[in-house]
Write a protein that binds this DNA or RNA. Structure first.
Length: 573
RNA sequence: GCCAACGUAGCUCAGUAGGUUAGAGCGUAUCCUUGGUAAGGAUAAGGUCACCGGUUCGAAUCCGGUCGUUGGCUCCA
């Protein structure tokens, strides 16, 4: 029954009812727009004094009384002229502005009780059908989404068909809050940000977070070398001449600049020009191609202060970047290779993903033939891999088509992660060449690609996805050895030493506390294996095994436990 | 960058009609305790109440500014 369309109508009606309530409580507000959105609805208002949280409660109460009176939603139509007159009379300047986009159309309105709004619909039959809603937050929003326009006050709310659905949604919000990587990052001692002393948007990786990162980096490097990539390093500081050649300087890319010996330098916001420098050190033959260069390149971008968010949106971050330089004829094979690599790496973390193909935008560089050739190669690669994809027409970058990948995390949120972009622009700007089999000099095709996007962002996503309980293979500590009393400490140290000798990560809880306390503490740290040793275990050369997920598993010989953990690590469990 | 809310110990939070030495829990340190699967006990240390300025006899509390955080908007090659 409650299809997407029904839910949409429900929420849209909720936004009308909210606007009606706001109108009643604050007669001077002017109406902006009020659509249904993915998780609810909002309405924008022009008002002299911003709304407060207390106002939300009052508005909710008012809404409930409108719902109680079961006002019917009635549709009626006016000509453009009549509509204009009507809205002028209502004194709704913003609505009048919207009307201008519909000059040659019949204009539809919806009326319920004393409230009438310019609206395409559809709506509920009457206000009494809104059973479950909640107002969530107040925010500023530019009129018509343009930062040059004035800022309106937006109220967000959500509505569902049933109270249970609403409650489930609110519970999910709470669950997301519990998993917040900023909270878990501090609790699990993974990273910190020192906004005041060291600057916002810059991440400090603690020892425990660094282990996770290092293990993933090693995996990433090995996998790339297996796939024919060469690892490189390039400088962070580059003279602006290079950013002028790349075009970033002219387009005022948000970079950091400094002056050295009278020359202007920029901190790199991306790695591609560096890789191009390496390419250009030799005359390349078609026989040398494809060249695949990979770098975990740390870049800095001057992001606006308001967009910074934990590890997910920062000013300094490390891209798992790579560039492939190839001939047009090699493009398909290279794309196939990249799609396979993405599948391997994302699959290791257990992520399902969805591909999106973005085609040529209105403003673009490059010839028609190139765009067609590249777009076809991307399509063909996706088809050959049997990868279903959604096409985003016109959403490509100005320099070439791209494929993006979005993953779904443990609580159903989607994150844009990997991206693969064909580039016709930079090879020309940097005059990159190779000598083809016909003896002619040609520009290679360049592919930019990142799988995690950035380590910082990926780490943030991983923390939230796993709720801090990292898979055994990349967990900061794989095992903690817990003595029951002080006299078992030496034995526990021996056990930890053996585990480490096997290439695993283990620590000993040496604190003078009871077993229950240490278990609780290890459990909170989400350590996969807790190995307990008392008199019995010492005597038998065993440890009692407790896993963070399954609890007490009983005693086992130390070597057996080590083998079991090793087996899981090998399988990236 | 824009709109709004917020900023008290390492963490989570009390504390305002402006009035001596600003509180609690967790965590930390020391001592007692040597305990068998999610918190044993005692004592102690720890705060320029974000910062700067103003109002006042007196400011954590009121006002202004700055910085930062949060939720949005814009942006996100």
């Amino acid at each position: 029954m409650s299809s997407d369309a029904d839910l949409h109508a429900l929420r849209h009606s909720a936004s009308h009812i909210m606007a009606q309530a706001v109108r009643k409580l604050f007669p001077n507000v002017k109406l902006g727009i009020g659509p249904a959105i993915e998780d609810g609805f909002y309405y924008d208002f022009k008002t002299g004094t911003p709304f407060t949280t207390d106002d939300l409660k009052k508005i909710e109460t008012e809404m409930k009384s409108i719902i109680k009176s079961k006002e019917a939603f009635e549709r009626f139509e006016l000509s453009y002229g009549e509509a204009k007159e009507f809205l002028a009379k209502q004194n709704e300047p913003l609505k009048l502005e919207l009307l201008e986009d519909h000059r040659d159309e019949t204009i539809s309105f919806y009326r319920n009780g004393d409230f009438t709004d310019l609206c395409a619909g559809p709506h509920l039959e009457h206000t009494g059908q809104l059973k479950a809603f909640k107002l969530l937050s107040v925010a500023g929003a530019y009129w018509r989404g343009d930062e040059k326009n004035e800022m309106l006050q937006r109220i967000y709310g959500t509505a569902f068909a049933t109270k249970d659905d609403l409650q489930a949604y609110l519970t999910q919000l709470e669950e997301a809050e519990k998993r917040d990587h900023r909270k878990l990052g501090a609790e699990l001692d993974l990273f910190s940000i020192h906004h005041k002393e060291a600057g916002p948007g810059l991440i400090y990786w603690h020892p425990r977070g660094s282990i996770v990162r290092r293990v993933i980096e090693d995996f990433w490097k090995n996998t790339h070398e297996d796939h024919g990539y060469q690892l490189v390093y390039t400088p962070h500081l580059v003279k602006v001449d290079m950013w002028k050649t790349s075009g970033h300087y002219q387009m005022q890319y948000p970079m950091y600049f400094t002056e050295i010996d009278g020359d202007e330098y920029g901190v790199k916001p991306m790695n591609c020009p560096g890789h191009i420098m390496i390419y250009k050190t030799q005359t390349r033959s078609y026989r040398d191609l494809p060249i695949r260069q990979a770098e975990m390149g740390t870049v800095y971008r001057h992001e606006k202060s308001g967009v910074l968010h934990g590890m997910l949106r920062v000013r300094g971050f490390t891209q798992d970047d790579a560039h492939v330089f190839c001939t047009p004829a090699q493009l398909l094979d290279e794309m196939l290779g990249i799609l396979g690599l993405i599948d391997t790496i994302l699959g290791t973390f257990g992520f399902q993903y969805q591909a999106y193909l973005s085609t040529r935008p209105e403003k673009s560089v490059g010839s028609d033939e190139n765009w067609e050739m590249a777009t076809n190669a991307l399509r063909e690669a996706l088809d050959k891999k049997g990868l279903p994809y959604i096409e985003d027409p016109g959403e490509g970058v100005f320099y070439g088509p791209k494929i993006d990948f979005k993953i779904k995390d443990a609580i159903g949120r989607t994150w844009q992660l990997s991206t693969v972009q064909v580039d016709f622009n930079l090879p020309e700007r940097f005059d990159m060449r190779f000598i083809d089999s016909d003896g002619e000099q040609k520009h290679p095709v360049m592919i930019h690609r990142a799988i995690f996007g950035s380590f910082e962002r990926f780490m943030g996503i991983l923390i939230e996805h796993f709720a801090g309980a990292f898979p055994i293979w990349c967990a900061p500590e794989q095992a903690i050895v817990i003595p029951i009393a002080d006299r078992h400490l030496d034995y526990c140290k021996e056990v930890a030493k053996k585990i480490r000798a096997a290439g695993l990560r283990a620590v000993v809880d040496e604190r003078n506390e009871k077993l229950g306390y240490k278990i609780r503490s290890a459990q909170k740290q989400k350590i996969p294996y807790m190995l307990v040793a008392g008199d019995k275990e010492v005597e038998e050369g065993r440890v009692s095994v407790r896993t963070r997920a399954e609890g007490d598993q009983g005693a086992a010989p130390v070597q057996e436990v080590i083998d079991a953990i090793l087996a899981q690590v090998r399988e990236f469990k």
